[in-house]
Computed example of a mutant assay.
Amino acid sequence: MPPVNAFAAVSATAPLQPIIIERREVGPRDVLIDIKYTGICHSDIHEVRGDWGPCPYPLAPGHEITGVVAAVGAEVTRFAAGDRVGVGCLVGSCGKCDACLRGQEQYCSVKAIWTYGDTDVDGTVTQGGYATQIVVTDRFVLHVPDALPLDTAAPLLCAGITTYAPLRRWGVGPGKKVAVVGLGGLGHIAVKIAHALGAEVTVLSQTLSKKEAGLALGAVDYRATGDPATFQELAGAFDLILSTVSAPLPMDSYLSMLTVGGVMVNVGAAPEESGMHLRLLNRQRILTGSLIGGIAETQQMLDFCGEHGIGAEVEVIAAEQINEAYERVLASDVRYRFVIDVATLA
């Protein structure tokens, strides 16, 4: 294949910059995608800055990808040139282990292949969506419903499935009371999805600065966790608490807001150990975590969002603004997700 324009990190400290990368040739089960939009996930920043360990530079991040099929391999039947498609956090797995057979490829016991910074099927380093094209095995390509614009759909490929999967896993629906901790890139989509599922949604945030926005997204209440009275007034109030923040939380306080048998799910960083065990034991509460979702569930999420008109609230930027956008993400200065217009890489 011809070289592909990309925007990549060349070290943990240098700004991201334009580079040329190679994509593998389109095999019989591959799909070649012209990328249109790629969301900026906080994970991109952690990865390229080496926060999670050694990084194979140069690296083009990006796992919230939408675009249009340019070509397909000879054995591909589910996609054709011109189809609107998406690619999320996964581009490969063994397909044979118990997790894969259950549709949970993200937990593949042999080797899940992540969209960037991993080893691809041909032995090269996977390069993500900060690029004009990508080649992906057809099993890991998703159809994007016509009802969803490609720019607002891009963050659904990570933030959408990350929040949708636990909400469905724990039976969120009419009659359920759900609290979403944080109203950022993950949290704002969680509010939309939980509301569309029929739940009564409350946002828990440090301050009330985003209250008006939270209520507009579908929440019925918005409380400041910086006020100690919040935890007293909401004791035992929620069937499920979905934490979308990466900062350490006073877990005892949050667990006290769960009803009997209530569930707290962390999709941000795992919480620090605390004296929470007694609260879990005494009232059969559950503290768990969740990591994206499988491919079939991701397609289900996209179809659900298409039916309900759910997309991310985005600020579309040019490639030359990526480094500035990273700093703004770290400063929580975006409502709620940056999306790169990949045409500006060409």
Results as ranks from 00 to 15, higher is better:
I45H: 09
G39H: 00
D44N: 07
E64D: 09
I33Y: 00
A60T: 14
W52V: 01
E64A: 07
R49H: 13
P56Y: 06
E47P: 15
R29M: 15
I33K: 02
H63W: 03
G50E: 03
K36W: 04
P56Q: 05
V31C: 05
I40N: 07
I35G: 00
D44V: 14
D30T: 02
Y57L: 08
C55I: 13
D34P: 11
T38G: 07
A60S: 12
Y57N: 09
C55L: 12
V48P: 14
R49K: 12
R29I: 14
I45P: 07
G39D: 00
S43P: 13
S43I: 09
L32Q: 10
W52C: 04
G53V: 01
I33H: 01
I33F: 01
G53H: 03
D30M: 00
L32M: 08
G53K: 00
H42D: 10
G50D: 05
P61K: 04
G53S: 02
D30A: 02
H42E: 10
D44Y: 08
H46V: 11
L59V: 10
D51K: 14
Y37G: 05
Y57I: 08
L32G: 10
G62M: 07
C55F: 11
I35C: 00
V48I: 15
C55Q: 14
R49D: 11
H42C: 12
S43D: 14
P58K: 09
Y37H: 02
D34T: 15
T38A: 09
D51R: 12
C41H: 01
Y37C: 03
V48K: 11
C41A: 03
D30H: 01
C55G: 12
Y37I: 00
H42R: 12
D30G: 04
H46F: 13
W52P: 05
I33W: 00
W52H: 03
L59R: 06
D34L: 12
D51P: 13
I40R: 10
L59M: 11
Y57H: 08
G53F: 03
V48Y: 13
V31T: 05
D44S: 08
D30S: 01
D44W: 08
E64S: 03
H42T: 13
A60G: 08
D44H: 10
I35W: 04
H46L: 14
D51I: 12
P58F: 03
